[in-house]
Amino acid sequence: MVSIQDLHKKFGKNEVLSGVNLEIGEGGIFAVLGPNGSGKTTLIKCLLGMVIPNKGTISVLGKNIKHGSNYRYQIDYLPQIANFPSNLKVKELITMIKDLRGNKTTVDEQLISLFKLEPFLDKKLGNLSGGTKQKVNLVLTFMFDSPLIILDEPTSGLDPISLIRLKNLIQAEKEKGKTILITSHIMSFVEEVSDEIVFLLEGKIYFKGSINELKTKTDQPDFEHAIASILTENHA
C-alpha cells in the first residue's frame, strides 16, 4: 500500500527524518508513535505531499507521489488541528470538500447524524467549539471511500461518546479491508485499535511490529511501560 525508501527531511539545520524506510501492507491499522518532535507529522505530511522530502521516494499504491496529485484520491486525511475558514458554514464546507473531490459520496449524512452535527450545519465554523470542529473534521475524512486513511491525532477534543463512535468507525473501515494510519498520544487508544505499531525515534524507525512483539522486545508487561522504557533507554 505504502512504500517509503530512504526518506530524508531537514527543516533548516534541524534534521527531522534521516533515512526512513517503511513498508505498509494492505489492510489493518497502523499506529505511528514517537516522542514529540520525532517526525510523525512530518512523515505523514511527506506521504500527503505537503512536505517535500530532501531525498528518498514514496509510493502509494505503487505510484510515486512525485508524479501528480491524483494519488490523493486514494487517501482520506484527518489533519491534526482542525482549523477551517471561519467564514464558511459547516454545510458549505462539507459541500465544498465534496465538490473539490468530485462529489462521489453518499455517506456524509449518515456521518453527520452519527456525530449529531445536524444542529450545527448552519453555523459558521469560526463559532464552533474545538470538539465540534473535530467532529466536522471526522465527517470530512470518513465521507469518502478511499483505501488509505490517515488520522493525525483523531481523538483530540472528543467526548467519550464520540470517541466510542470513532473507534467503531475505525473498526468498520478496517473490516472493509482498508489501511489505516494513526498517530496518537493516547496509548490506551493505540493499544486498543492498532494491529501494528511503527515507532519513530530521532528521525528513524526504531521499531516496527505488533504490540506483543514490542512488549517482548522491551521486556515490559504492558504497552505504556514498553514505550516508556524505549524513551528512557535512549535518553539515559
Binding site: 500527503l48 505531499g49 505537503m50 490523493r72 487517501i75 470538500i97 473539490l100 473531490r101
Partner: peptide, 9 residues
C-alpha cells in the same frame, strides 16, 4: 492545508 491534503495540484 486542508486543500493541500485533497487531490489538487
Amino acid at each position: 492545508e486542508l486543500l493541500l491534503a485533497q487531490p489538487l495540484k
